[in-house]
């Protein structure tokens, strides 16, 4: 890990892309992919900012990211089940913001 700046810029790019898509994506699956990509970006930031310790990557940061990845997959799996169930019960697969701001 000798050029952290490049990875940081990449992470920033991924985060921005994910956020952009999260806001305008028409399909919920696309939004979930956006969340997963933003998650990877944050994990990149975590590992890169943790820096090198005694020559190798920071062990604790790696463990945190591993935990993060497993939690991300659990959350995405639940979200997918929710989206499928939403499609079954309400017949729509998108969360257009202005349809029910509180009903």
């Amino acid at each position: 890990m000798n050029h952290p700046e490049i990875w940081m810029l990449a992470a920033a790019g991924l985060f921005g892309l994910g956020l952009y898509s999260l806001i305008i994506a028409r399909h919920l699956l696309r939004q979930l992919i956006a969340i997963k990509i933003m998650g990877s970006a944050v994990f990149l930031v975590l590992v890169v900012t943790a820096g090198l310790v005694d020559g190798s990557l920071d062990g604790i940061a790696q463990a945190l990211v591993l935990t993060g990845i497993v939690i991300a997959v659990a959350a995405i799996a639940f979200a997918l089940a929710l989206v499928v169930s939403l499609a079954e019960t309400t017949g729509s697969i998108s969360l257009n913001p202005d349809d029910d701001d509180g009903r």
Binding site: M8, F15, G16, I23, T49, V53
Partner: peptide, 25 residues
């Protein structure tokens, strides 16, 4: 969305670079 995304990218990028440069190790 575009505006928000560009802002977020800029924020994370700038902060990331600052964090990387301030790596105390």
């Amino acid at each position: 969305a575009l505006v928000i995304a560009v802002l977020a990218t800029g924020l994370v990028g700038a902060i990331g670079l600052a964090a990387v440069s301030a790596l105390t190790g």
